[in-house]
Amino acid sequence: MIRLLAQLGQRAQEALARLGRLHLFLVSLLPALPSGLLRPRLVVDQLFHIGVLSMQIILVSGLFVGLVLGLQGYNILTTFGSAESLGVVVALSLVRELGPVITALLFAGRAGSAITAEIGLMKSTEQLGGMEMMAVDPLKRVVAPRFIAGFISMPLLAAMFSAVGVLGGYFIGVGLLGVDPGAYWSQIESRVDFHEDIVNGVIKSLVFGAVAIWIAVFEGFDCVPTAEGVSRATTRTVVNTSLAVLGLDFIMTALMFNV
């Protein structure tokens, strides 16, 4: 029993230490970011790996989430006789919550884990150490471009998710279930506010993007440079990013959408 407590205490201590290193890492990363901007070639390369290669899963997921929202939304709304509000239900759910959050979760799973693995592998094959000895700061050359690319990609991906989802809701609602197409779009236009909903959604995806890429890059940089260490780091990236995104979502929703 005591041993269990001791183990728990040690885990907690490790977690706290990692949290501390995470923030110290950010402090050393921030000054290196401007040099990332001076190397657009590297950023563009990373935009390809992070953004373009995530597009597929984002678009497909967005479409299916939109379709499901359309179906479920219609189900519930017809019981109240307000099936024409389907557009509003789909659009608000996506723009305010599902777009930024699900995109962030998918991003962590696909791009975040890949980045952690890549940087972790570079660390364990001494490529990062080699760079340091060649007087090239790995923070500037490896980490900064990935950070910038991740930060740019996330709001774009979240917007794509929401847009495709709204279209998906349209296909199901109007195409299959007989909702009036004019009602679908006009209800949306009257009830979805640019400042309150769209802008807040974009702000959320920017915050999620920063957090997701920050955790992904840190875990790779900080991992134990062995095969097992890298695999544990990628798991941590996905888990910690997901938890952070969901927690931040709650806080931001509470702040932004006060009833």
Partner: peptide
Amino acid sequence: ELRKRMGMLFQHGALLT
């Protein structure tokens, strides 16, 4: 700056893959 005047050969090469 000093490191630019040094070269290091790591045990397994450490080439950028």
